[in-house]
Design a protein around this nucleic acid. Structure first.
Lengths: 186, 186
DNA sequence: CGTGCATGGCTAATGGCAGTAGCTTTTTGG
DNA sequence: CCAAAAAGCTACTGCCATTAGCCATGCACG
């Protein structure tokens, strides 16, 4: 019996593939084990259980999105940067709709996820810097941005819009509305 | 062995209670049966299986929300009606956070849910009537309203906002921003 | 009043899944 | 070369959904 040469990250990778192919509800240790060519109990050598695996997938997804954010914001500022962030958000979700459903919405409440959540936050904060918002205003603004990006993304990825028609236009209008709601900046 | 006197609606009611108390992930035929004081297989006399039960719960939740919408919109019009709808949406979700997670986001794609989904839609359409939007504009507008209401509600009900502080203010700003994005109306 | 039959409940059994225990083989480090 | 950690495995338990088939209930009608 040769060794499969697994690792925690390899198991997480297999889990993400299962989610991409069959949806987040199909994430099961049995399915991951099958994909890894291993018996289910063997996974416990790399992962504490299904709960931990889900957390690790959450971390992975949060970080992937943070990477996209960082890419999108790079070399831009002001409204341009915000627009790029919003489009990066949507692009990630449309590229991996099922994966998005595995992203925890409350990362700051779980220590294992907090770091990845904060990475996203920092990119957004940086993009908002030109507006010189006071701390309370910054919180409000980030919340509103999240509401719009997450609201649109979760509806789109779940097929919540009746017709796919003109969705680009809808999203663009939302971004514009959000930007218009910000105070003028230098 | 006396009869429990169940019915499909009684089973759905028990399912909703299980969700309210233990979250949507705890919705299991075993839990519903226990709450009904019945063995699990007996539920199949009233419900085709777990999948159908979930659908029926979805219908129930969609209709409850549509009722709240109708109440809120009654006797109001224009921006006042929209504001009332948005607050009714949030009030329902904060009153029953777990139940909201059981509400399907794509009701129009499943025949069993479509009627309940359309009820909601019609109330929103009526509230938007004063703006005399063309059909395309109406679709865009309803989408944006949904994005904001659902985005906020799903984040709030899932604990997605770091601090509960000033959430009323955040939501009010979103409503105002949305209303400002509409063309002036008579 | 009885009786028959649809209804609503039950127990038993199957198959899928997570998770645990304990064994065997591989790999690695000294 | 050998010992021990690491990475597999099989066997087992317990929970859940679902199916099959049995039995009591209670209503509808003679």
């Amino acid at each position: 019996m040769p060794r499969a040469g697994l690792s925690t990250q390899a198991v997480v990778q297999a889990a993400v593939e299962v989610i991409d192919e069959h949806g987040v509800a199909a994430l099961t240790l049995a399915a991951v084990a099958a994909r890894c060519g291993v018996a289910a109990p063997s996974l416990y050598k790399h992962v504490a259980g299904l709960t931990e695996l889900k957390t690790l997938v959450g971390v992975r997804v949060l970080n992937e999105l943070a990477d996209r954010f960082a890419d999108a914001a790079m070399g831009r500022s002001g409204a341009d940067a915000i627009t790029a962030l919003m489009h990066a958000y949507r692009a990630y979700v449309t590229a991996h709709p099922a994966r998005y459903a595995a992203m925890p919405v409350d990362p700051l409440h779980q220590p294992e996820l907090a770091a990845a959540g904060i990475r996203q936050l920092e990119v957004i904060q940086a993009a908002l810097r030109p507006w010189r918002l006071d701390p309370a205003g910054q919180i409000q603004t980030i919340r509103k941005l999240r509401v719009i990006a997450h609201g649109f993304a979760s509806l789109e990825s779940a097929g919540g819009f009746g017709l796919p028609e003109d969705l680009d236009e809808t999203y663009q209008q939302l971004i514009t509305t959000f930007l218009d709601s910000l105070p003028a900046h230098p």
